[in-house]
Amino acid sequence: MPVDSMPVDGNLTAELGAFDAEAVLAEKLDRGELTLEITPGKIAAVCAHLKTACGFERLSGVTAVDRYPSEPRFEAVYHLHSVSRNERVRLKCRLRGDSAEIDSVTLVWRSANWYEREVFDLFGIHFRNHPDLRRIMLPDDWQGHPLRKDYPVRGYK
């Protein structure tokens, strides 16, 4: 089966290591997909570097995974895509449940605006410096964040 082109030689990690040695916490190549775990505080800088110096001109999406009840509870997940290199990479930041906050990457890609709003709405992760952090799917007065694991799938309040 052809693999959705992901870098397999690990040169991206080297490129990022040269940019900031402390940025990448771990790297994993699984099923042909590269995942880099990034220090949460450096996500905006890493993304800016990947966009300007490594050719990742597109942000394919932002989402999150809730690992409740283990800590750090949240994983913020960024899927980056380079049309010119025909490569994809996944960035991941682990966030604690009591301080689910991370820098916004809207200054790097404007498309992050709605993607981050969705994560804020459904997971309750706060994006610092986001220009318009409001709920996007649910009504403004909604209580709770449905995609959290401690939010029930069905039932009445």
């Binding site: 089966m1 052809p2 693999v3 082109s5 597109r58 025909n86 498309s111």
Partner: peptide
């Protein structure tokens, strides 16, 4: 378009030859 997250026929109408069926066939 690339910055705002547009994909598909709109990009191709702007001259970018990118189609996942070709670049990463499945």
């Amino acid at each position: 378009m690339l910055d705002l997250g547009i994909t598909g026929p709109m990009l191709r109408a702007a001259g970018l030859n990118w189609d996942t069926r070709k670049t990463a066939p499945y």
